[in-house]
Amino acid sequence: MHELTKKFGDFIAVDHITFQVKKGEIFGFLGANGAGKTTAMKMMCGLLRPSSGIATIAGYDLKTQSKQIKKRIGYMSQKFSLYNDLSVTENMQLYGTIYGVKPAALQVRIRESLKDLGMEKYADKLVGAIPLGWKQKLAFATALLHKPDIVFLDEPTSGVDPIVRREFWDRIYKTASTGVTIFVTTHYMDEAEYCERICIMSNGKVMMIGTPTQIKTDIGVDSIEAVFSKFVKR
C-alpha cells in the first residue's frame, strides 16, 4: 500500500496512506467515525477506485488486476449484507457459486462450516429470522467459503454483545492460524489489543503503525484507549 488516496470532490477521505501487511497477520485499523477506515478498506476491496497511489493485494495490482484480487479476498461489510429473505444455506450456496466453488466441494464446505459454527439448526432458517450475533458469524463464514487469502472485516462486532464478540475474535484467531490475513477495522479499543499490529487513522491520515505494546510504549501510556484519545484530541 503506497500513498493510497481517495478524494470525494474537495474532501480527502483517505490521505496518502502507506503501510504493509504480512501474510497471516491480524491487522487492525483504528479510528473514530469518519477517519477514513471504511473508505480505505473499500478501495482495497475494489468497491471504490483510488484517486491516486498504488497498492498490491495478494500479489496483484489494485488498479489493473482487480478481478484477480476479488477472487482472492473475502469481505464482510459494516452493515449486515447477506440476503435476509434467503435461508442460511441458500446464502452460502449463492456466494459459494458466485466465487466459483464447485458444487460438490461447496456442499461439503457449507456442511463443515455450519457444523463448526454450531449453526446446523439454523441451516434452513431465513437469515432475517436469526439473532444478530449468529448473522455476524454467518457473514464471516460466508466470506471464507472460497478460501480467500485475505479477509476484510469492517467493524464486524459492532452491535453484538460482549460474549459474541469474544467468540468472534476466537474465530478470527482460528482463521488467521490457517494462514489467512485478517484486515479488521474497529472502534472498540479492547479489540485493538487483540490485533497483532494496528494502524491508527485520523482525518484520513495514518497517525501510527505498530504492535499495540510498541505504540503504548512510544506514547508512554498504558492503554490503547489513552493513545486514541490523545490523537482524537489533537
Partner: peptide, 13 residues
C-alpha cells in the same frame, strides 16, 4: 439500500 449489492460487488462476478 440494504447494502446487499455491495456484497455482490466485491465478488468476482
Amino acid at each position: 439500500e440494504l447494502g446487499t449489492i455491495e456484497q455482490i460487488n466485491v465478488t468476482p462476478i
